[in-house]
């Protein structure tokens, strides 16, 4: 066990699985080197390893057969990944920005997600699509979205949204070993956070929520970056004697309904924080779940904290106002507590 960054936790999971299983391959833009490094078989330079350096060093260890650079064509990346998965490999595609799924959506939601079902279980698509989500980077409207709720609405896709280095490694390992297509959403602002991560390989099962804070007065349900903001609020309110429970579902498909409902049953007050969308998003899905199955536990209306229904602004000031902030979460908590 040692402190590792979110970035390194992801890298470790890929490395370990590639060593463990020769069918695991990495496919993406600049995954070998990047930043203009001239990497050839003859001239092996250790390049940057993708835009974020997550795949740094993989090419030198595993070679061009298993670390495959692609042209700037998302449909080719995911098409190739789905085909490789259907024919026996366990590919990990690096889509860079999840915002780009629009270009290759057919490969993912209409092909890979449906293989196992439509071929009566004869084919499967054991693939992972990694990509960045989230605002806060001044990356403007086309590179700042968190579209995990769209994947989660497609049956056949599993959707993982880890919030900590520990979760990232364990869940990515599980994703690679899983026989279904998994969309793995990494938040841009989390790559440099650090946390305790075991040095060995381990898995975290899908559909198991993590309680990052345990409390008795109110439940905050949050994902990814929002878990950290919820924790911040929980710690602040603890000084006032308000006991906040923070539930991080970690995977939204499958969703740990029981883990959420048990917390709701014990506190009776709920705030759901979600960066995905102001409408038809993850928060709305969970709110519906609670209204349907946990209604009688509720002591106050469910409160949602989401961005407004607008594209993500480029201006840093506006972008910060757009993102659900700790202040807005705190206001929502006080509202459901009626204090």
């Amino acid at each position: 066990m040692s402190k590792k960054s979110y970035r390194n936790a992801i890298k470790e999971a890929i490395e370990f699985e590639m060593r463990r299983d020769p069918t695991v391959v990495v496919i993406g833009e600049d995954v070998r080197g990047g930043h203009g490094a001239k990497n050839t078989e003859e001239n092996k330079l250790e390049g940057f390893g993708g835009v974020l350096g997550v795949t740094k060093g993989l090419w030198t260890e595993f070679g061009s057969e298993r670390v495959i650079d692609t042209p700037i064509t998302e449909s080719a990346i995911i098409g190739m990944t789905a085909g490789a998965a259907a024919t026996g490999l366990r590919p990990i595609a690096d889509l860079m920005f999840m915002d780009f799924y629009g270009v290759c959506y057919d490969m993912l939601y209409n092909q890979a997600a449906k293989f196992r079902y439509m071929f009566g279980g004869k084919a499967k698509a054991p693939m992972v699509v990694r990509g960045m989500i989230g605002a806060g980077f001044s990356a403007a409207a086309q590179h700042s979205q968190s579209p995990y709720h769209i994947f989660a609405s497609t049956p056949g896709l599993k959707v993982v949204v880890p919030s900590s280095p520990y979760d990232a490694k364990g869940l990515l390992t599980q994703s690679i070993r899983d026989d279904d297509p998994v969309v793995f959403c990494e938040h841009k602002l989390l790559y440099d956070i650090t946390g305790e991560v075991p040095d060995d390989d381990y898995t975290i099962p899908f559909g198991v929520a993590n309680y990052t804070r345990q409390g008795t007065d109110v439940t905050i349900i949050a994902l990814s970056l929002m878990v950290h903001r919820a924790n911040e609020v929980a710690d602040k309110l603890a000084n006032e004697g308000i006991s906040v429970e923070v539930v991080d579902p970690r995977t939204i498909s499958p969703l740990d309904e029981e883990g959420i409902l048990e917390s709701v049953a014990s506190t009776g007050r709920v705030v759901i924080v979600d960066e995905s969308a102001a409408r038809c998003g993850f928060a709305h899905d969970v709110a519906a779940l609670i209204a349907q199955k946990g209604f009688y536990s509720l002591k106050a209306p469910i409160e949602l904290v989401t961005p407004p229904h607008t594209p993500v602004p480029f201006s840093n000031v506006l972008e910060q106002a757009w993102l659900p902030s700790a202040e807005r979460i705190e206001i929502a908590v006080r509202k459901v507590l009626e204090v």
Binding site: P205, V208, E258
Partner: peptide
Amino acid sequence: SGPQQRVSIN
């Protein structure tokens, strides 16, 4: 009955 035989209140 949960994932990996996780025990719930139910």
